[in-house]
Each structure stands twice: as C-alpha cells, then as structure tokens.
Design a binder for these strands. Structure first.
Length: 592
RNA sequence: GCUCACGUAGCUCAGCGGAUAGAGCACUUCCCUCCGGAGGAAGGGGUCGCAGGUUCAAUUCCUGCCGUGGGCACCA
C-alpha cells in the first residue's frame, strides 16, 4: 500500500496559518534569485530562534561558494521582511535564525481565531473514505486489541471528517463462520433466555469457552455443531433466528462498551461479515472471468506476484477452500468491491493490527489486478502494535487471561474517581462522576494514541492517570485552568474575542506561535494517520501555556489592555486544546 | 530459510537530512503564603543496537550484520 498521494489529501499550502510557512513563502523568491532556480528555503523549528532557514548550505554547495555568503545574498534579495520577522541573523555555518514579529503574530492570531475551524484547512478535494475499525467478534469478549483499533480508528474518522471528507464507518464484526455451529448449539443447550441473559450482562468469554469446551470433548456435540453450520449456511429459518439472538445480544454489549469508551460507532455502522455472503459467489466468478483464478491443492486461489511461502514457492490468496467454503480473503475482497463500487469510496482505511500486513497487501494486490481498486482509489493499512504489561509481554490479567476491555474501562473510571475525590473534594458527587468518566476514559485513550501506533506500548495505570507528563489528565487540567481564569475574572470568553492580542512577553510570543501551528499539527497527524503527532503538539501547547501562565499574570496584568490580551490568549489556547482533544475523541471538562 | 516491523537517558517515550539529540517519571540541589502547589529554577544521566555507504551535513536515507517480535496454504 502506497502512501497517499495526489490532490485529494494534500492541501493548498498557501492558506496555512503556521508562521513558519509564511517565512518559507517569503524567502522562496529570494532563494530562487540567488540559486538561479527554485530552491526550498528549508524552514525548520529551531532551538536558537523561532525558526531557522537551512537552505543556504545546499545552495552554496551547488554554487561552489561560501554558505554564509549565500545566506547574506538571500537576506539582501529578500528585501524588507520586517512585517513578519523582527530579526534575522546568520549563524553557524550558514543558518539564518528567524525571530517572528510580535505584530505579525498578533495579526495572524486574530485572523485565525476568528475562524470556527481555528485555522485548520479544509481538504481541497473532498473524498469518500471507508474506515474499517473495531471489528469485535460476536459471542467473544472485547479485549485490548479491539481497544487499539477502536480508539485509533475513531480518531482517524474524526480527523478525516474535520477536514471535510465524507467518512463511512465500517464495523466489520465477526458474525459468521464455522464457530457459529457450536455457539448456536450451546445456545440451544442453555435455553435462549438464559443464554441471552448471560450474553446481555457481558459474560461473553464464559459463553464462548463453554461452547468451545463441549466442542473439544464431546463428539456428539461436535457433530451437532457441524450440522448446525450447514443449516446456518443453508438459511434455515429457525437457525437464523437463533443466530440473530447471538448477534443482537452481542451488539447490545458492544454498544455499552462503545458508549463507555465514548466513540462514534453505533448500530448503523455495523457491517458484519454475514452481510457480504451474497457477494462471495460473485467474487469467485469475477476472478474466474478475469482469468486470475487457479486451482491449487483443491482450492480456488489467486497467486498475486511477489508473495512466496516458506519453501520459496508462490503464495496463494485462497478464495475458496478445498471444502468449498469461503474464508476471510473472499470476504475482504467482497468488501473492497462493496466499498469502491457500491459506496463509491476512494480511500479504504483498515485499522487493523500489524500482523495482518501481508494479508492486506495480498488482498490489495488481487483487488488491483481484478480492477476493483483503481487509482486514485487505494487501500491504506493503519497498522498498530500490541498492548504490553509492565513485564514487557502481552497484557494479561493476574490469572493469565486476556483482559476484558469493559473491566479495564470500568477500572479506569474508578481510578479517576478516586483521584478527583482526593484532589478536588468540594466537587459535587454527580459532577464528579461525569468528570471521572472523562478523565479515566481520556487517560486510557490518550495512552493508546500518544505513542507511535506501529510500536507496542506498555500499559501503566499510574503513568496514564498522572497529572504530569504527556497524559490526558495533564492536558485536561491545563484546559480546566484556562477556563477557570474566566470564571475568576467574571468575563465571558466570547467577549474577549473581538479584541486583538498584544504580544509582548517571550512566553506570549511562544504560545502565540504554537497556537498558530494547530493547522500544521492536524494535517501532519492526518497525512501519516498518526494521532500521536497531534498528541505531541497538544502537549507542547499545554506546556507553553503553563509557562505563560506561570510568568505572565493575567488577572493582575499591568493594564486593562494587557489583561484583555492575555485573556484572549487563554481563550485561544483553550479553544485549540479542546478542539484537538475532541479530534482524539477525548473530552475536555471545564472544571475538574 | 524468506519476509515485514521495531532497537534513542535507569524507566516510559518524542524527534521533520541540519547547530550542543529532547520530554515526562525517577534521582540531586535550591526557590516560592503566586490568577487552581495537580508549582518553579538548576543539575547529573546518551558510543541514538553494530559496521559500512550516500551527503557540505545522517538518530533521520541506503546496504549488510546483531537482537526482539510478527507473518509465511485452506482459522479470522
């Protein structure tokens, strides 16, 4: 799967609010003049200034001259840039250190913050994207693997929608296949009502384990289960009714978890494997007509180029098994057809664990060969790693079982409740429970989102619920403080928005630049489907705010003008922080 | 065996071809009756897995090796 190219996802950089881009634009012509061709000024954040321009070094090499000399020529060619830069210095081997003009930042802030979108650009070409995420299995407990898919997928959905794309959420639940024979027979043994009860309260693992156990030790049961699969696939009315009981009880349970987790998924987003049944036959037929289908060891397969098995022989994607049954490759291909041809989606995102990489590549290869996936339509595997315990191994409960997602989320809320009761005992009990939910769930989601998704991450209650460091509670706390100032001041937040900020202090300056970089941060996260990049930005924003708050008195400012200006910065920072957290699927309480 | 990821401070993690590689926690020293102390300042701590290569410049790109984990024909 190739990275996203083309106009659909890129944006016209001319409207970027990031001040570094203004610098880049302003110096582009000067670099072209000096270099005699287009040359990227290469503007980057810097430890030594607001930004550094690195382009002179490369140009000097090309011209065979001294980089510092090139830098001087560039400065000369750029002419008067005092409207955006208050200082320009050549440093080191030929860097140009840039300090942005306070006046410029002030003007930019006022313009950007008057926008409901806080400067975040809309995609120039709006596309339709199908995001495949969460995907729990019917009659099976949700675990931390589903947590990652659900949380990351949900954030990507929010990001895509925020920039104007149309998103179809696809919850590809596992509601079909051979295990349903044993599950239905177990349901019959238990009695529908009892079984519904057990599934309804979320004891899915127990139900599944019992069914599995009987299947393994009881030959008669095994035989019934096999016969039941045939009935199910044959569309037997009574069997389908029993099957529907399993599905609906499970989905009720999933919905409870989704509600607790505060994600966008609803019943309307469920697109179970069973819903593709009628499309599986046509997949085979179309592959046959396209002359891609071959028979190998009794199975109908396609051999996409470039895939080998452990013996070095071509590796097939099995479309139809030797016993005539279909498997998940068939179903995934049916999904591609459905999403591209029926829904008209041009971006197919799969928020699925990293181990599925090869399978998805093979599906993509076959779908492309068959002509079901033609550019600019593309598949994108948003892969993620495992959740580990503090021992560095896959997260397990004390007993060694997989951790139930529902139990984990409840524990998060409980822990947050304790923390808030300790730190803010005055808060009313009902408000406390609401806030505890936002903090606890936010902490879990943020700990999942804030590191590079492709890596494994270590699950650690204490760290994720800490109010220090790169955590959700720290960001939420920063937001609550921003809001708190307005209550203290007795000023409506909206009322400060008509004034313009006056940037003077260094901390105000730094904070203003950070706020203006929200657009860059959102697009950066979206370009790489990496919410953690947005997390890093929000953490820096909160850090910059804290420094500002510490050193720049707001309510006790020297003048009314300065007080209003600083309130303006508080409001702007709060708006960006709340919006950013929202794009991660995390709530930002006004008090905590 | 082939293949795909990952390897950065004691721990957990950022890091966009650019200057002296950052953050939080932990540790050491110090400060402050301050708009929410759920503070602030300073400090110690690194052969960026190893070795080559490309480049004016490599933690970043390329190749090889080492280590860890995953995948490699009818489970999904």
């Amino acid at each position: 799967m190739k990275p996203v190219h083309g106009a659909a996802m890129r944006h016209n950089r001319k409207t970027m609010s990031d001040p570094l881009h203004a610098v880049s634009e302003r110096f582009a012509l000067a670099f072209a003049t000096v270099a005699g061709r287009f040359a990227d000024p290469i503007v980057r954040p810097s430890d030594h200034a607001d930004a550094q321009i690195n382009g002179a070094l490369g140009v000097a090499k090309e011209l065979g001259t001294n980089p510092r000399q090139v830098a001087e020529q560039v400065l000369e060619a750029a002419g008067d840039v005092s409207d955006i830069c208050s200082s320009l210095e050549i440093a080191g081997p030929g860097f140009i250190n840039v300090t942005l003009s306070n006046q410029f930042l002030s003007t930019q802030l006022k313009s950007v913050m008057s926008d409901q979108r806080l400067g975040v650009r809309v995609a120039p070409t709006r596309i339709m994207a199908a995001v495949d995420y969460s995907a729990p299995n019917v009659a099976k407990e949700m675990h931390v693997g589903h947590l990652r898919s659900t949380v990351i997928g949900d954030s990507i959905v929010r990001l895509l929608e925020f920039v104007g794309h149309t998103v179809i959420r696809e919850n590809h639940i596992g509601d079909w296949g051979t295990p349903f024979g044993m599950l239905i027979e177990h349901l019959i043994d238990m009695g529908q009502d009892t079984a519904a009860q057990e599934l309804g309260v979320g004891d899915l693992d127990n139900f599944y384990r019992e069914a599995r156990n009987k299947f393994d030790v009881d030959d008669a049961f095994k035989e019934r289960a096999r016969a039941r699969v045939v009935l199910l696939q044959g569309g037997d009315t009574e069997t389908l009714s029993l099957w529907r009981t399993l599905v609906s009880e499970s989905t009720h349970y999933f919905n409870r978890v989704y509600q607790l987790l505060d994600v966008l998924l609803t019943d309307a987003d469920i697109k179970g494997e069973s819903s593709y049944n009628s499309l599986l036959g046509p997949v085979v037929e179309r592959l046959r007509l396209a002359k891609l289908l071959e028979t190998s060891d009794g199975a109908d397969v396609v051999f996409p180029a470039g895939f080998n098995n452990r013996d070095g022989d071509p590796l097939p994607l099995i479309i139809r098994k030797g016993d005539g049954g279909y498997n998940y490759a068939t179903s995934d291909l049916a999904c591609v057809i459905d999403r591209t041809e029926r829904l008209g989606a041009s971006l197919l995102i799969y928020v699925v664990g990293a181990p599925q990489a090869q399978h998805l590549k093979m599906v993509e290869a076959v779908a492309t060969q068959a002509g079901w996936l033609t550019p600019p339509a593309q598949m994108m595997h948003v892969a993620f790693g495992n959740v580990l315990g503090s021992d560095g191994k896959m997260l397990k409960s004390r007993v060694g079982d997989t951790v139930k997602l529902a139990a984990l989320l409840e524990e998060a809320v409980e822990r947050a409740t304790v923390a808030i009761a300790q730190k803010n005992p005055e808060m009313a009990v009902d408000e406390r429970s609401q806030v505890a939910h936002m903090i606890g769930i936010g902490a879990v989601k943020y700990s999942d989102l804030s590191t590079d998704r492709v890596k494994d991450y270590v699950f650690d209650w204490e760290r994720m619920l800490s109010f220090d460091g790169n955590t959700a509670p720290y960001l939420q706390y920063a937001h609550a403080r921003m809001c708190s100032i307005f209550r203290r001041a007795g000023v409506e937040r909206i009322s400060v928005r008509s004034v313009g900020p006056i940037i003077f202090d260094g901390r105000e300056h730094t904070l203003a630049i950070r706020i203006l970089q929200f657009d860059s941060a959102v697009w950066d996260a979206l370009d790489k489907y990496s919410p953690h990049r947005l997390c890093t930005y929000l953490f820096e924003l909160a850090t910059d705010f804290t420094a500002f708050y510490e050193h720049c008195p707001v309510l006790k400012a020297d003048t009314d003008e300065q007080r209003m200006s600083r309130l303006y910065l508080c409001d702007a920072a709060a708006r960006v922080l709340e919006c950013g957290l929202n794009l991660l699927g995390i709530r930002a309480p006004e008090q905590m």
